[in-house]
């Protein structure tokens, strides 16, 4: 009878029986999408070479994930967008004119060593893209810190080697920076739009902010990390960033330079490697900001976003243990 066949098909599972529509894939692809404006800007500033570098890191990330999962007999997860995202972030964190094997090496380290060997998405302690980038930096320090001026042509032929704004600021000070960029306003506009040397995807502050706002709007990230990270960088830059006197620094230059916007919106907010409790995320963000500025102002490198986030990744589990959400009914509510 019809009824019997029906009953055989009844699905029995634990409540809740409805779920909302978000999924890992939906979130990851949205993050990829949010990075696109800045990515396209990078093609505009750095030309086809930037395109090839990002494409290589994306394709190799997906390839390594697929190959590894095949090799150990796990179900492949390349459709969830996270390998794509790792590749995209690696690409966007590289100087545009690298030899082609370098992005591939970075993807290998990120996807295989940092992500999959720890158990795959959800189990890694460090942000895969950032470790990949850090590995490349220590292995090929020279190549990884040679910056080209923005030029839409095929990089390597006519683009001049230069330093990043943060490099100039650190070595030669603000006056040199203004010499290069013109007035202060010109400087701000160049930094905002991304017309400057740097990792190919980090330069266009405005498009990164637009992407970040989109993620905030979609509630895929919350304000806690970006605001506390960017806010603490601004405050520290203002207090300690000036030459000589306190409270004379220029926070705007620090906010729009280096990898801050890319880091604060897209990498420090990586779910797996940041604290999951919002209060803890504020601590995490402030830690990232403070370490970034420590490196920028006192350290050996002009830029510190990457190491700051990686260092704070270590503390994320600790922060999550220490900070608890407020339990309902924790304090005896009514005294009679």
């Amino acid at each position: 009878m019809a009824k019997e066949t029906k009953e055989k098909q009844l699905v029995v599972s634990v409540s809740p029986h409805v779920r909302d529509e978000e999924s890992i894939a939906k979130i990851m692809w949205s993050v990829n999408f949010a990075l696109f404006p800045a990515l396209i800007a990078s093609f505009y500033y750095f030309g086809p070479r930037a395109m090839i570098v990002t494409l290589l890191s994306i394709v190799s990330s997906i390839g390594f994930e697929y190959a590894y999962q095949k090799f150990v007999g796990k179900k492949t997860t390349i459709n969830d967008g996270s390998a794509f995202l790792t590749g995209l972030l690696i690409g966007m964190n590289l100087p545009p004119q690298l030899p082609f094997y370098i992005p591939v090496m970075g993807s290998f380290v990120a996807v295989v060593l940092v992500k999959q060997l720890f158990g795959g998405l959800g189990y890694n302690i460090f942000n895969p893209a950032l470790v990949g980038r850090a590995f490349l930096l220590v292995t090929w320090p020279k190549l990884m810190t040679t910056w080209k001026e923005p030029s839409a042509a095929f990089v390597g032929l006519d683009a001049k080697t230069t330093a990043t704004p943060l490099g100039i600021l650190k070595e030669e000070g603000i006056s040199k920076l203004l010499e290069e960029f013109g007035t202060k306003n010109d400087l701000y506009i160049s930094l905002l739009t991304g017309h400057r040397a740097g990792s190919l995807g980090e330069t266009s502050a405005i498009f990164l902010i637009i992407g970040g706002l989109y993620l905030l709007y979609k509630r895929y990230i919350t304000w806690h990390i970006p605001v506390s990270f960017v806010g603490s960088v601004a405050v520290i830059a203002w207090i300690f960033g000036g030459k000589g006197a306190l409270f004379t620094g220029d926070p705007l230059i620090h906010l729009m330079s280096g990898g801050l916007m890319l880091g604060a919106f897209f990498m420090a907010t990586d779910y797996v490697t940041c604290p999951s409790i919002r209060k803890g995320q504020i601590i995490f963000g402030i830690g990232c900001g403070a370490l970034t500025m420590l490196i920028r102002l006192k350290g050996g490198f002009p830029e510190g976003v990457m190491f700051a986030i990686l260092l704070m990744n270590c503390f994320a589990p600790l922060i999550d243990r220490g900070v608890k959400p407020k339990l309902f009914g924790e304090v005896k509510a009514v005294k009679k």
Partner: peptide, 27 residues
């Protein structure tokens, strides 16, 4: 079309959405 299968689930990606949802303030 109203039904979401519960068959397949993944590792926790620690996104914190559940913490923001829990009326009891649990993790």
């Amino acid at each position: 079309d109203e039904f979401t299968s519960n068959d397949e689930y993944f590792a926790c990606i620690r996104c914190g959405r559940c913490i923001d949802a829990c009326p009891m303030g649990l993790n």
